[in-house]
Every structure is written in structure tokens, then in C-alpha cells.
Simulated scan of single mutants.
Amino acid sequence: MADNITHHFITSFFLIGIPGLQDFHCWIGIPVCLLYALTLLGNSIIIVTIKLDPSLHQPMYFFLCMLAMNDMALASSTAPKMLGIFWFDAHWFEFNICLAQMYFIHTFCIFESALLVSMAFDRYVAICIPLRYATILTTPMVIRIGLAGMVRAILMVLPCPLLIKRLPYYTKYIINHAYCEHMAIVKLASANTLINRAYGISVALSVMTLDLGLIATSYIKILQAVFRLSSKNARSKALGTCAAHICTILVSYTPALFSFLTHRIGKKVPPSVHIIFASVYLLVPPAVNPLVYGVKTKQIRDRVLGLFFPNRKILEN
């Protein structure tokens, strides 16, 4: 332990993994590895498919590309370290590297939320004001929306590591988690952490409240527009274009909300359950999103099948 404490300040953290389930870490690593591999493979296929097919060079698919790249980055910021803990007992994490991981995880999560809002706006424009779709969602506008979401995430999370750096860490160095999560690090400080806690909660609440509110508003407008359509087939087709996005929202926000609530008010929830859900929140959506869009979006499905089975249509005919 002497190597990890200099001048009475902690220089490294010891990540437990999943408390109470240490004997099963080797087995827990298997689904983590599979989810990570599926994330890299599935999102890479989505990106390559959209890039190779000019007919998919549309705002909806540009946002999907951003989502795929963000999902790979989010999974890559967590899964390798988790596997190091579960399979190779690599529990020690240098202080600044731990803060960097925390920063990237939360930045990618907030950017993911911004992308889901952008995709909801895309569906709103496409269904509610289709005649202006091409003039509103131009390629430069899509790029600006993506950059705005990324800048928001970068600036909102930046104070977190800076506020932690000012705190003293004398004796507590064990993090009961599988990755460097903001509140898990803050709790170890040997000082008053009210500012850190208040800022962390305010960021989480503001992002969720604002983004979910914007998404809900978009879909209320979409439903109003859809139910004004006289043709049942037109209504079904319009809602069908939103199916993949709605599934992605549910997959992304449900474990996030559960993790957030259990961390703050679920005092009786075992730590292992909280950490499993916190890990599910980071690993499952990036792996599931490509499957959702591959199955629910006909254009993506047809192009992917065309890439892997180029003679499929010939055989069908």
C-alpha cells in the first residue's frame, strides 16, 4: 500500500469490482466480454453500411452514425478495465487515470442523451413538417447539432474532475465499484463534499429532465400529427419510422433511471445490485442499439443483408 500513498495523499484507487460477488468475477467477465465484442462489431457494421450506401446519407442515418461511434467509445471506456478486474485481478487504478475514465464515461453518457434528443427532433421534422425537412436538417445543421451536443457534454462534466482534484484523499482508497463512477470517488474524500454532490446531482437531473422533456414533447407532437392522418396505412408507416428510436430510448433511459434512483434513495438495495445495474446501463445499450436499428429499420436491415449475402435477391428470385 506504501506505493499508492505519497505524503499521506492517495495516488491510486483499488476497485473492488462487484462487492459480494468476487468469487464469480471470472464468470461475470464472460457476458461483459460478449457485450463489448457485440458493441464493436454491431456498431462497426452500422457505420460501414451507412458509409458505403449513398442512399443512406440522410440526417437520420448521420445521427445514427454518431450514436454508433459514441456507443463504441462509451463501451471502450469501461469494458477493458472491467475485464482487467474480473479476469486479471488488475484492481489498482492511478488517481488521474481514474478521474479521466470518470470524465469520459459521464461525457459520453450525456452526449448519448443529446443524440437521442436530436433523433427525436429528426423524427418530429420528418413527420410533422415533412415539406421543410430537407431545408431544416441540412448536413451542416446535423453537424452543428452533433457538435453542440458534444460541447454541452464536455462543459457539463468538466467541473467534476476539477472539483475532485481540490479534495484531500488521506486513507480511503477502496472503490466499491467496477469502474470510476463520480459519486463513488467523491464518497472517499476526507473533506466536506457538499459542492461535489450538489453539482453531480444537478447535472444528472438537469440532463434527464431537459432531454426527456424534449423527447416527450417531440413525440406528443408526432402522435398528434399521426392521428390526424386519415389513412391507417399512413399512420402505421409514420409510427414505424419511430419504432427503433423509441426502443433505443427505453433501452438507454430505463437502467439509467434505476441506477440513479437506487444510488440516491435506494438505501436497502444491495451494493452488488446497484453496481450490476450501473454496469448494465453502460454496456447493454451500446450492444443492443445496432440490433434494434438492424431489425426495426428496413433500409439498414436490407443493406446489411446485402453486404453479407450479396446473392440473396438473386436466390429469392
Rank of each mutant, 00 (worst) to 15 (best):
Gly306Thr: 05
Lys165Phe: 11
Val284Phe: 14
Thr254Tyr: 03
Val142Phe: 03
Phe308Cys: 00
Lys313Glu: 01
Tyr293Asn: 13
Cys247Ile: 00
Ala68Thr: 09
Arg144Asn: 09
Trp27Gly: 01
Ile10Trp: 02
Leu158Ser: 12
Val117Cys: 12
Leu307Pro: 04
Met156Val: 10
Ala184Asn: 04
Ile97Trp: 09
Trp92His: 07
Asp211His: 15
Ala204Lys: 10
Leu163Trp: 05
Leu35Thr: 01
Ala287Asp: 11
Ile300Trp: 05
Ser252Arg: 12
Tyr169Trp: 03
Tyr199Phe: 14
Thr107Trp: 04
Leu163Ile: 12
Ala178Met: 13
Val32Cys: 05
Cys242Pro: 01
Pro19Ser: 12
Leu163Phe: 14
Gly42Lys: 10
Ile18Lys: 08
Pro31Gln: 09
Glu94Met: 06
Thr135Glu: 14
Gly84Pro: 09
Phe24Ala: 14
Ala73Tyr: 07
Pro310Arg: 06
Ile220Cys: 11
Pro19Gln: 11
Gly306Asn: 06
Phe63Tyr: 15
Leu205Tyr: 04
Tyr219Gly: 02
Arg197Phe: 09
Ala90Phe: 08
Cys33Lys: 06
Tyr133Asn: 11
Asp302Ser: 11
Arg264Gly: 00
Ile50Ser: 00
Pro271His: 12
Ser252Phe: 15
Trp87Leu: 15
Cys247Thr: 03
Leu115Cys: 13
Met102Trp: 01
Leu99Asp: 00
Ser12His: 15
Thr107Lys: 02
His263Lys: 07
Gly240Ser: 14
Glu316Leu: 14
Arg152Leu: 13
Val186Gln: 03
Pro286Asn: 07
Ile85Arg: 02
Ala225Tyr: 10
Asp211Asn: 12
Met119Ala: 03
His25Asn: 10
Val203Gln: 06
Thr297Asn: 14
Trp87Thr: 08
Ile220His: 12
Ile47Asn: 12
Ala126Gln: 14
Ile145Cys: 03
Pro159Ala: 06
Thr248Leu: 08
Leu188Asn: 00
Ile30Asp: 12
His106Lys: 01
Val207Leu: 06
Val186His: 00
Ile249Tyr: 07
His25Ser: 11
Gly266Gln: 03
Asn43Thr: 09
Ile45Asn: 04
Lys267Asn: 12
Leu305Asp: 01
Leu158Asn: 06
Ser272Thr: 10
Ser259Phe: 15
Ile143His: 13
Arg197Gly: 05
Leu214Trp: 04
Tyr281Cys: 13
Val280Lys: 06
Ile28Asp: 00
Leu194Cys: 08
Pro80Trp: 04
Pro270Leu: 11
His25Pro: 06
Leu116His: 12
Tyr103Met: 02
Arg144Cys: 13
Met156Gln: 09
Cys33Val: 04
Leu56Cys: 05
Leu131Val: 03
Lys81Thr: 11
Ser118Tyr: 15
Arg264Lys: 09
Asp89Gly: 06
Met119Ser: 02
Thr11Leu: 03
Tyr219Gln: 05
Thr49Gly: 00
Val125Cys: 02
Lys221Asn: 09
Leu21Arg: 11
Ile222Cys: 01
Val304Trp: 00
Val269Thr: 07
Gln58Ile: 11
